[in-house]
Nucleic acid binder design. Structure first.
Lengths: 233, 233
DNA sequence: TTGGATTATAAGTATATACATAAAAACCTG
DNA sequence: CAGGTTTTTATGTATATACTTATAATCCAA
């Protein structure tokens, strides 16, 4: 490639990717800088910039100002996965969605939750246990804690009409969140709620969301057996 | 905000985000076009473009040429998660990594695998079962199928020195992959290999990677109890 | 009324230019 | 030579401009 042809940032990206894959540029090695590449490819530096930035975002390149751009040493692939609202997920499969509130209380949380929610000792939180059903069958249940200080209006919300999750995403802006995925073994409680056998392996998502000042909510979703989360690169 | 101040694409993005969160722009609604916003924010259209493109990538906006930009109706949050090589993951925690090949054979795969690998009937694949250990304790085991047609050189590779996964990422470029995450219940085999109890819930990742012409490999990783995959938004 | 061609429009991209910023490298200076 | 200062440099960002492309909307004819 020596200039003259048509070039888009995608063309540049593809060629850079090819060189990485072909080991013409080896892991850890510096690649030519943007200015040089733009000359080589016969395009503007901004075009090269966009291509390299994109590759850096997906983990294949490491870039640092002044230092330059190098092929990532440990090419950690990044997969993006969608975190849908459960109702949409169920309805998206053509099943009917229903949910019911199994428990709603305002209590002082156990210490683990208190730590996650970063609330003071003795502060009461809203505790909700909700079961979501797909075509009438248990799909997932959520054990959720909400900080009422962070969520004005939650007291007045009818959480049996609209699930807490939906109410929150619709009404409370948040800045960030963290997710963790794991597996657990169904105990008596889980088996009862999800109508499965004790001892089955269940998929679990723990999630907290927060805004600038508060942890808004922290929830553990325990899915019925067979649940599968999927993504592509 | 009416022009004159300092503006970066991040400022624009933050303000757009604020309006979405504050429901000034409601889900499903069209927002002003790039030209209008660039006037309002007193910046170039390219700056607005970058901000909006970014928000669209993270699922908060829907954009279509000619049609315009609208707030996503079902704001599916996208989380990105890192898919590390197991050795790096273990070594990253300061533990020592070791792995051993439990089984290596060249056989015709069962039909489920054959479908995943898109190989013809009767075609033999490389089948590998590998256990990865952290500080000598079972961490995860991989049940892997490799298409030798897609992987020249695999026959000569010493897969007890370097794990198949590492060998593959180091030697075989791939175009895409898919991942699915689920939970299973430990049976006799899993309990034996992972030194856990039968009936424990285990975290499972199924993953296939391919290039233009072939499915390269398909692997199921079954993690020892307690494994947790984590990500932030 | 349908269905195909035309037009108008909003996003998408490319580019030259300029300046900002982080940080490595070189240069002091005590 | 240590520690701080300056310089250099590669990436990061902003902007005006121009052109491309997908596609919604319109128009027109059978």
């Amino acid at each position: 490639m020596s200039g003259g042809e048509f070039n888009s940032w995608q063309t540049v990206q593809a060629e850079v990717l090819r060189r990485i894959n072909a080991r013409e540029w080896k892991p850890g090695e510096f690649i030519p800088n943007e200015a040089e590449l733009s000359v080589e490819f016969g395009c503007a530096r901004a075009t090269v910039n966009r291509a390299l930035r994109n590759l850096a975002e997906s983990g294949l390149l490491d870039r640092r100002r002044k230092a330059g751009t190098r092929v990532a040493l440990h090419p950690v692939r990044k997969a993006t996965l969608d975190i849908p609202v459960i109702r949409y997920e169920i309805e998206g499969k053509g099943q009917t969605y229903r949910h019911s509130v199994l428990l709603q209380e305002r209590v002082v949380p156990p210490s683990g939750i208190r730590a996650r929610m970063r609330t003071g000792p003795g502060v009461k939180l809203l505790h909700l246990v909700t079961l979501h059903l797909a075509d009438g069958k248990p799909y997932v249940f959520g054990d959720r804690w909400i900080n009422p200080d962070a969520v004005p209006g939650i007291e007045k919300a009818d959480l049996s009409a609209q699930s807490a999750n939906e109410w929150l995403v619709a009404n409370i802006p948040f800045e960030g969140g963290d997710f963790s995925f794991s597996a657990m073994t169904a105990g008596k409680r889980e088996a009862e709620i999800l109508a499965c056998k004790e001892g089955e392996g269940l998929f679990v998502i723990d999630r907290s969301t927060w805004n600038k000042t508060h942890v808004i909510t922290s929830v553990r979703l325990t899915f019925a057996p067979g649940y599968r989360m999927h993504t592509e690169i």
